[in-house]
Write a protein that binds this DNA or RNA. Structure first.
Lengths: 216, 216
DNA sequence: GACCGGGTTTGATCAGGATCAAGCGCTGCG
DNA sequence: CGCAGCGCTTGATCCTGATCAAACCCGGTC
């Protein structure tokens, strides 16, 4: 693995509600989350908030700011957050000498395009929420946490906003899922009881792995 | 400006309905459109098509495939299309030696993240369509075409699918806009009559230029 | 000119989820 | 212990845009 610790600066801890950056701040660094959860959001000119993403431990954020020279979104800690900060200028310089790093960066960027496009689909409330839960579970599993029993570190209203639903709808769908034996929810604790059916529900919105085709 | 003609290969012409690449094809190149319009779309496992984007002359496509090693979307010509093809491997190698090229690539990728995220907002049908028309107009203006009078090279059903609306809704909203004196539509010819009001309508979905803030 | 067929428009009905309005249940604090 | 406040849930109603169905328009073909 690449060793980037010479470029790495630990920042934090941030506490719930602290901002890491705000829209309009000059763009200098990208971040990886060491611990905690970060919410990124933008605010349109009518003051409405749009939750863009949640970033869990191990994940990268700040890539959407490369295009302009300042951040277009805001990043706020949802709980106690520790970050690693990487100067993007120095990262780029290093990438010119390390093809592997360059490739990693290109891939990270490309991946986010796909992720963003997924949200844009016109899925139903059930599909969206199922995909959200499965997605969360997979991301937690990737960093070694339990995939079947976890805590929602974000408020219902943030989930709703992220999925473009009303908070009431999120509440109702979760209840609905519980009644159907798909999950068990208590406050912010979630347990996935029937992963198979949940994945089936969310499959379209999760963009199931495409079949690799042979070269023509 | 960078001269990339050593890496460039002209391909085409493609005719309406011809595919440039399909989901599952191995990823090797990115493309810029020389002439014509290309539609990219994906198909979910239930066979439903999702129009991801339209690419006009001067625009880049294929960036979302970098992450995986094969295309996740399909690209089809809507009219007569000519492309320039660039081997991504050779482009990356060159980028390692040309920081400016590397920066351009990073920016292109980053920009697409933002564009994709915009579509995900929960805008009304009016806002979506206004933003679509203004966006199209701006992109045409950027390549020197008339921004106030242009042809929709894509079918209503593709516009509808792209904006996550029903084709009937697109039809109705366009009529509505015409009745309100915002535009004139005849078949696929569109004329923007009241750009100011149209921009106001689509402003949220267009993510108006953010105010640049002073460094903290 | 009659016939077709795809793309588009128009009209009528329907439904998913938003909105409005209370109520509930923690948690923290005086 | 009681109260306040926030986050969440529950219920009732409403509205936007989807869906269903049919007509229409234009270009191409026989």
């Amino acid at each position: 693995m690449l060793d980037l610790h010479v470029l790495e600066a630990r920042v934090g801890p941030f506490h719930a509600g602290d901002h890491i950056f705000r829209a309009g701040d000059p763009f200098e660094s990208i971040y990886t989350v060491r611990a905690g959860t970060v919410k990124t959001y933008s605010v349109d000119q009518e003051g409405r908030e749009q939750v863009l993403d949640f970033h869990l431990a191990g994940e990268v954020m700040g890539l959407d700011a490369i295009d302009e020279d300042w951040h277009r979104s805001n990043a706020v800690a949802l709980d106690t957050v520790v970050l690693s900060q990487f100067s993007f200028t120095r990262l780029s310089m290093l990438a010119a000498r390390l093809p592997r790093l360059q490739k990693i960066l290109f891939r990270l960027l490309s991946r986010d395009i796909g992720r963003a496009a997924l949200l844009a689909g016109d899925w139903s409330a059930d599909e969206r929420l199922a995909a959200f839960l499965i997605g969360l579970s997979r991301r937690l599993a990737a960093r070694g946490s339990s995939p079947d029993r976890f805590e929602l570190t974000m408020a219902r209203i943030d989930i709703a906003n992220h999925l473009r639903l009303a908070p009431e709808t999120v509440s109702r769908v979760l209840k609905h899922f519980q009644a159907g034996g798909l999950i068990r929810v208590d406050r912010r604790q979630v347990e996935l009881l029937d992963r198979v059916r949940l994945e089936a529900l969310g499959a379209s919105a999760l963009q199931q792995p495409l079949m690799k085709r042979a070269a023509r």
